[in-house]
Design a protein around this nucleic acid. Sequence first.
RNA 1: GGCUCCGUAGUUCAAUGGAUAGAAUAUAAGAUUCCGGUUCUUACGAUAUGGGUUCGAAUCCCGUCGGAGUCACCA
Length: 592
Amino acid sequence: MNIEKYISDAALAAATALYGEVTPAQIQLQKTRKEFEGDYTIVTFPLLKLSRKSPEATATELGERIVADNEAIGGFNVIKGFLNLSLNDSFWSERFEEIVANSRYGEAEPTGRNIMIEYSSPNTNKPLHLGHIRNNLLGYSVAQILSANGHNVIKANLVNDRGIHICKSMVAWLRYGNGATPESTGKKGDHLVGDYYVEFDKHYKSEIKDLVAGGMSEEEAKKQAPIMLEAQEMLRKWEAQDEEVRALWHKMNSWVYDGFDVTYKALGVDFDKIYYESQTYLLGKSLVEEGLAKGIFFRKEDGSVWIDLTADGLDQKLLLRGDGTSVYMTQDLGTALQRVKSESLDEIIYVVGNEQNYHFQVLKLVLKKLGYEWSDDIYHLSYGMVELPEGKMKSREGTVVDADDLVADMISTARDMSQELGKLDGCTSEEADAICSMVGLGALKYFILKVDPKKTMLFDPRESIDFNGNTGPFIQYTHARICSVLRKAEEQGIECVAHGTGSMLAEERELIKMLCDYPATVAAAGENFAPSIIAAYTYELCKAFNGYYHDHSILREENETTKKMRLTLAQQVARIIAKSMRLLGIDVPERM
RNA sequence: GGCUCCGUAGUUCAAUGGAUAGAAUAUAAGAUUCCGGUUCUUACGAUAUGGGUUCGAAUCCCGUCGGAGUCACCA
């Protein structure tokens, strides 16, 4: 049952009986804060105008009425204008039994809403780095959360596989590669191609330097450097469908995709649809025509097409180049339109870094001006940079943290820690590998996802993998301990039974309440696209369980009924931990 | 300069306009050492700043100061 709705309805009925017309919005319900007695709290301030009494008097008469009318609500107390209601133990026992019996607990009914979430969207000229990790983890987790909320989620990846950047890698490979391939070098494809991108930049700079030494202005040198001219020429050939260039482009991109696949697999993310910009970059031109016809866009003398957004506090924005070719915005407009139509989407979420906030502001505004009301259904899930204890990542200074390296480091740290403690001695090497990978990745994922996306964050690898504190491994550890208890119970032939809970300790009631909060937590995370809400919930659950487990033995409990109840409680806590973590894309081990 | 976002304990993070601003970590003191690396208690310690709205503001509005991003015929 929906507990919050039950309480709200009870309060609404009582308030209506006392004061006449009361709207649901006037019933402010929240969970009672820990330091006060009670389970749910009604804030009575919004009702004072109707009751014409003091906050205390209003809360008291409302409380009396609610308790009199509802058997499950056993008592209340009033502090200032806050009415704290307490539910009976039997009520919580019943809720607990419901959870145990519900195999789909926390999964919402289908909503029929189609939501596309686009994330990752890499360039094919270099490997993924720490910033992409935040993107991928966020995108995957939000997709999981939206699915749990009953939506049809389409995970999409729009690969930026064309343009001058990939031509740069191609030119450098032709010039300096000597036919090197991933096979011949033993290098991951994306890294190999990335190396030539770096190589391009190196030679480009030295060519500029030479030209400047020869008397050319720096600005001119940047345009005239032979290697840059070569790259631009290659882009022209690419657009003209030159066979040789296309063949090389296919070859090098396929290396990159093989490399990305490995990284995605390591990160545990996946996609339902992969789009390539080489196939979508021509979209959007008809929209430009449409905008011109409607007089929303205007054409400059050189033939380029613009929109003037100065009245909206923005700038003039280019939508089509003078030569008729499209820019980023053109194809994003076209892509959005095409998707909304062909997938009948109700919502599109773009997981893209906050350096593109302006772009999405413009995108939505242009669509709106064209008369597409679904512009409101576009949501830019913007996230901030990830910094490291050593400082900011800067590609120019070579301080970029590679995604593959980081993942490998996290896993090997997890391995070192486990070996030191000898915890994996009894495992096969496959089991040990799986556990180290779960722990290393769990540390990384949890640490990144617990933070509000829009904030710039600091990733501290050492802190993230600590077994104490608000970390992934702490949560995994709690789960593994419970599994250990459950294994022992099984060996002893003890069954888990939920009914007949009998008396209930305060900590047990607290844990059951937290388990009851799970569906509402999933809903809140879905509404706000916020994995951090799930993370905070799970951490609180683990802390509460650890405290309980410390004070009250499960297997040594002498009363058989109590023992079974505690065991079931532990089992359900483990179940919800695992479910929550899955929403974050994190796996939990049964031993570690 | 225009626009957007962010400023919370030493540090890293929380807080649908609600109660005494929570954790974690670090530091200090104490208890415990029993199903897995303990756990618990206590102490210390923060809303950048000035106004406004409200019964009530870290949160909403305006100003100031600090930081980030962005303002390309790049993506």
